[in-house]
């Protein structure tokens, strides 16, 4: 379970978010909606430990009662999915996926994991393709599976569907939700599209400009 308590975000001249608290159970997706510039992405940066120096955040974050906010980003085991799929353009699909698997996994297990991943993607024939040969929807799915293969403890989604064709979005959303449930980790989605929030079948928090 991922818990945030009393999160407050301020820039140099004003407070953006005040006293935000929530819990997300394993396998559940919490959606956070709000206008742009309100500090939604900064909440994700706070949780992943990469908040920009120009902003100050207070509050606590816990993963199964283990404090997150005191750890450096590399010790947090966080998965982050952004608008851009960020597949490494100089590596084939299979290399991109293998990249994420922790080094201590044995060779057979690695092969097994990759075969499963490619099957789920329906792309067993494209293992050696380059990222630019895939469609936007396929890239988004590969990016999600790559993130999950790294076995993160929690997942942060920063408008991962906004660059996709509207027709593709429904499929990709369903794919993402199914994978999160199977991985059974808490996930936080930040979006400005209420369809995204609905499709995630979880709670939805709307934040307005702090007074």
């Amino acid at each position: 379970m991922l818990s945030v308590k009393g999160f407050t975000l301020s820039s140099t001249d004003k407070t953006l978010i005040r006293d935000l608290s929530f819990d997300i159970a394993d396998g559940q997706v919490l959606s956070i909606m709000g206008p742009s510039g309100i500090g939604k992405s900064s909440l994700l940066h706070f949780l992943s430990g990469t908040l920009s120096h120009s902003l100050t955040a207070t509050g606590e974050a816990f993963l199964n009662d283990d404090a997150l906010h005191t750890k450096p980003t590399e010790a947090r085991k966080v998965g982050l999915l952004q608008q851009m799929p960020l597949l490494f353009p100089h590596m084939s699909i299979i290399e991109n996926l293998l990249f994420a698997i922790p080094a201590d996994v044995t060779k057979e297990t690695r092969r097994e994991l990759i075969r499963n991943a490619l099957e789920k993607l329906g792309m067993s024939d494209k293992a050696n393709a380059m990222p630019k040969e895939l469609s936007g929807g396929q890239q988004a799915r590969v990016a999600l599976l790559r993130t999950l293969l790294a076995k993160p403890d929690y997942l942060l989604l920063d408008e991962p569907f906004s660059k996709l064709d509207p027709a593709l979005r429904r499929d990709v959303r369903a794919f993402v939700l199914a994978e999160i449930r199977q991985a059974n980790i808490p996930a936080l989605l930040v979006t400005h599209d209420s369809e995204d929030a609905k499709a995630m079948a979880g709670k939805c928090l709307e934040i307005d400009a702090a007074k």
Binding site: T50, T73, E74, Q82, L86, F99, A100, R146
Partner: peptide, 14 residues
Amino acid sequence: YNENYLLQANRLNN
């Protein structure tokens, strides 16, 4: 260079 590629790589395995 889009530094996000490098950040993502280090998130996947540091």
